[in-house]
Design a protein around this nucleic acid. Structure first.
Lengths: 237, 237
DNA sequence: ATTGCAGTAAGTGTGTACACTTTTTCTTCG
DNA sequence: CGAAGAAAAAGTGTACACACTTACTGCAAT
């Protein structure tokens, strides 16, 4: 038996599934996200068991967990099938995320930031300023900005101090193509504009203007959705 | 073996767990909500198995499903424990619901209502008008209004045509004390005001004013939260 | 008395057998 | 040749046994 007990326990707190089941869950998730299994396809438990070299028990646990995250659908006596994510659903997910992250920004403004949170956010702002100051992107810069962007949003979410909110936003991120780590528009000007939003959000929070923080954050995420729609309708496909 | 194969398959679509597991899930959920098991308590699988007279397998499935809904926490090799819901979390849940239902109202306004949805909502509005017209509540009237209120919100949610949104709102409802079926303020005037909100939301939707529908709905749910807070801080407890 | 360390009990994690349901395939009749 | 139905195959649902981990208890040493 493969002794791969090295598992990311880092995974978002409350999620179920013990040792083996957890790693199986991640593997199946990647099957779904990288298109190894197609949308609408049935997840055959015995086949998965054999291909992952575990029994059906952890496979079932993983499938149930993924259904809880909304990646799979369940029908009694018929098992799990890969949920479809048509464009409309993906776009809606951005809208939901906009509402929820707006709320998170408001909570953060109401509740205040810890020292380390403030430090992390300020670091991300400075790093972004620096990256953008050259006026042009070098190779790999976008990857770096992806990290900066993720730090900003994750930290703000933590500062909201609400688990349910975190989990819901996490679910939005798991919708294919909908992660905040995906920088949709690659133009320098667009990234600059979004980074400026970050500054404004932080200002609003530090000025204890929950209302304004919420509004700016909503618009911020919403504008990413708009960019996505534009880039998809523009290039055909 | 007890042959209770009569199970509500009506339960919200994508949720996992086959025949027996589903009924077990409902039973465990009620244990949690009615306080049979206390917050922070561990959910012993073998004990539950015996007390519910099924094997551990469906119990585990049910527990995982409930963890997916956020009612339970999971820790590897340590099982499931009942999540705590301090007042702050409950209040926050209303705020989250306000955001999400606001979004649902906007979607409904953008996407339009089907004939049957329009009929259901109009019926709920008329029924509410009638109930309120007497100026005073008789015994059982509040129970009736609970149904009317539920119909209104459920129908609007369906009209939003977004599953992820529905599921998230459903999760909010499962937070103890946070259901839209709980009429928090029992004063005639409060109910009248909320019912008037329903009218305005419907007007906004029919007038294709997504923006206004969202704003009114947000305020509508938020005001319930405010009433809850007031009623809890007022009566001590 | 307190701390540390077995040894043991309790509890979760996984594998597997079998029951039941669904789906497919093959046969038979129109 | 097509459709309906029955048998078979495939697949999910549940129970249970055993492995492994965690929690507890009691004893010994300081």
């Amino acid at each position: 038996m493969t002794d791969l007990t090295a598992i990311k326990t880092t995974e978002a707190a409350s999620v179920r599934a013990g040792n083996r089941a957890l790693s199986v869950m991640e593997r199946i998730r990647s099957f779904i996200l990288d298109g190894t299994v197609h949308a609408g396809e049935r997840m055959n438990e015995v086949r998965l068991s054999k291909s992952l070299d575990v029994s059906r028990t952890p496979v079932r646990a993983a499938l149930q967990a993924l259904a809880g995250e909304g990646l799979l659908d369940y029908a009694p006596n018929r098992g799990f099938i890969v949920r479809e994510f048509p464009l409309g659903v993906i776009v809606d997910a951005y809208e939901i995320r906009a509402s929820l992250e707006g709320l998170a920004a408001r909570f953060a403004a109401e509740r205040g930031l810890s020292d380390s949170e403030r430090a992390t956010i300020e670091k991300s702002l400075v790093a972004g300023d620096e990256l953008l100051s050259r006026g042009e992107f070098a190779e790999g810069d976008l990857l770096i900005y992806r990290g900066i962007n993720g730090d900003f949003h994750d930290t703000l979410l933590a500062a909201a101090r609400n688990r349910m909110l975190s989990e819901m936003i996490r679910i939005c991120h798991h919708v294919p193509m909908s992660s905040s780590r995906n920088i949709v528009a690659f133009e320098h000007r667009d990234v600059r504009r979004r980074h400026d939003d970050h500054h404004r959000i932080y200002e609003a929070i530090m000025a204890s203007e929950p209302w304004r923080a919420e509004a700016v954050m909503r618009e911020h995420v919403s504008s990413v959705r708009a960019s996505l729609v534009k880039s998809l309708t523009h290039r055909g496909q």
